[in-house]
């Protein structure tokens, strides 16, 4: 299905947030996730299924002031 990932359209075959993150290369990385603007904690990722057109944000530590 086609979803938005950090503002860009991508095609994914997985269905849950956890497996989609693995598919997109985030296995073993420290990231925080939001689905359609709502925070999804790590513990909820495996039970969160995505639908076509959903938008995920995947954020990591970055420099800040």
């Amino acid at each position: 299905m086609r979803i938005m990932h950090n503002g860009e359209a991508v095609e994914v075959t997985s269905e849950t947030l956890e497996t989609i993150l693995n598919e997109l290369g985030y296995a073993e990385t420290v990231v925080a996730t939001a689905l359609n603007g709502e925070f999804i904690p790590v513990s909820m990722r495996e039970n969160t299924s995505l639908n076509p057109g959903d938008s995920i944000e995947v954020l990591a530590p970055m420099q800040g002031g």
Partner: peptide, 22 residues
Amino acid sequence: VTVSLRRESGQEKAGQDFWKLI
């Protein structure tokens, strides 16, 4: 120190190196 969150790329993983540094 103050830090922030920004979009991470699944390929480059720039944030992971930064987090290790901190």
